[in-house]
């Protein structure tokens, strides 16, 4: 089955559930899952297709969230415009950071991105006068367009899922072309890819930047939806959580990651009493996947498709 048909089916399911679900708790949880899906789709391009790990993506989500919120609060810029500007700025920062770090081999890259995520968090914690530090940032305005305000969970649910699925479509189309082949070539044999005309380093930087822009956009939307952000939503554990979602979903499988993202973002909310154990569960999921299920849910999906 063509992935685009599959995507259409999912869009229909999402729309129908949006109409019939009545619990604001459920709707808001699913809306947040959609925002997370934006991040994991971007990370999947980087980790799943290109084989480059990032353990600092929550830092880029934070960058997007804080920059767009601050632009809107301190400079009274229109929220949409501030999300746009913040995404462009974070992508720029991503490119500047990615350029030197993506020359590193995989295990060094893991450490470097982990460090970058930490630096962003430290800076946010530290600049109390601007970001509010550990207290967080409040009074972020609502998103609205042509007098239509995204003020309830259902409205935002539709908007978040529309954005997430559109970006999913963009990613699917991109990877179904020569660019997707180039990325997978880089993932499996860098030197051969280079010999066949693929500028490996440039591609890595571009995909890293693209995944940073996804993360940043999700961060911006998150800030305006929740109306409050604090550095604790964007720590290392969150970065690793994104990696867990991509790994469990199956690196390089957009639909596998779609499902793992929904499941793994809902479960902690349902079992909120077990919050302490969640990082351990994440750890076990990673180890388990690498020992027994290196393709994650991917296998399951190629089986369903057939």
């Amino acid at each position: 089955m063509d992935s685009r048909i599959f995507l259409a089916i999912i869009a229909v399911i999402v729309a129908v559930s949006g109409i019939f679900l009545n619990s604001p708790f459920l709707l808001s949880m699913l809306a947040l899952a959609a925002l997370t899906l934006i991040v994991t789709t971007g990370l999947n391009l980087l980790l799943g297709f290109t084989g480059q790990i990032s353990l600092g993506h929550a830092g880029f989500v934070a960058l997007g969230a804080y920059m767009s919120a601050l632009l809107a609060i301190k400079f009274s810029i229109n929220p949409w415009l501030s999300i746009f500007i913040a995404t462009i700025l974070s992508s720029l920062i991503g490119a500047i950071i990615g350029y030197p770090t993506l020359k590193l081999k995989s295990h060094y890259l893991a450490m470097a991105t982990l460090a970058i995520g930490e630096v962003i968090n430290i800076l946010i914690m530290g600049t109390v006068s601007i970001t509010g530090g550990p207290q967080g940032l409040t009074a972020i305005p609502m998103l609205s367009i042509f007098g239509f305000t995204f003020d309830d969970d259902r409205k935002f649910y539709f908007f978040a899922w529309f954005t997430a699925l559109s970006l999913l479509l963009v990613s699917i189309n991109l990877t179904k072309s020569r660019f997707g082949r180039a990325l997978q070539a880089i993932k499996s044999k860098e030197i051969a890819a280079e010999a066949f005309g693929i500028n490996v380093h440039m591609y890595k930087v571009i995909i890293f930047t693209l995944s940073v822009s996804y993360a940043s956009l999700a961060g911006g939307l998150f800030a305006f939806y929740i109306g409050f952000i604090s550095p604790f939503s964007f720590g290392i554990l969150n970065s690793i959580e994104y990696v867990v979602m991509v790994v469990i979903g199956g690196m390089g499988s957009f639909f596998g990651v779609l499902f793992s993202t929904i499941i793994l973002s809902i479960l902690p909310n349902i079992f909120s009493g077990l919050k302490e154990f969640w990082p351990i569960a994440d750890g076990f999921l990673l180890v388990f996947a690498m020992m027994f299920l290196p393709d994650g849910l991917k296998k399951l999906f190629s089986w369903i498709k057939q």
Binding site: L174, R178, A182, A185, K187, S188, K189, A192, I198, G252
Partner: peptide, 27 residues
């Protein structure tokens, strides 16, 4: 040095990557 995650025609098509002029936006 074949690319394990792509099928054979996709592997071979890597050879024409640079001769193609569809842009990312086209894709």
């Amino acid at each position: 040095q074949l690319f394990d995650e792509m099928n054979i025609w996709e592997n071979v098509a890597i050879g024409s990557h640079i001769k193609m002029s569809n842009s990312p936006l086209d894709a």
